[in-house]
């Protein structure tokens, strides 16, 4: 296989896997809604962010095929993720120290 062909090879994901991930995302959404009704105090934001992060990872890895792409694309996605974490963290230098 030439390098060109290798770059363009398609990874086929079985439909079953997509459906499984979709059900997983629905379950996590239900969990978010359920947790919204419970007073978790200062853990509210942390739990919401953890659930949202897991959902994002599932979407990026499976639906956006990042799991099957080469290292460069994963690195780019990581840059975006790290930037996002830094933005949120810096904002909390304001909110957490009021």
């Amino acid at each position: 296989m030439t390098q060109h062909e290798e770059e363009h090879k398609q990874h086929r994901v079985p439909y079953g896997e997509y459906i499984l991930i979709w059900l997983g995302l629905l379950a996590l959404t239900c969990l978010t809604v359920a947790l919204a009704g419970i007073d978790l105090g200062r853990w509210v934001i942390i739990t919401a962010l953890i659930i949202a992060s897991v959902k994002s990872l599932l979407v990026m890895n499976v639906f956006m095929h990042l799991k099957y792409e080469d290292r460069m694309f994963r690195l780019f996605a990581l840059v975006a993720l790290v930037t996002f974490i830094i933005f949120i963290s810096l904002t909390f230098f304001d909110y957490a120290f009021h």
Binding site: F93, D94, Y95, F97
Partner: peptide, 10 residues
């Protein structure tokens, strides 16, 4: 009205 820590960091 940001926190002092926030102002220092930025």
């Amino acid at each position: 009205g940001m926190s002092n820590t926030g102002m220092f960091i930025f």
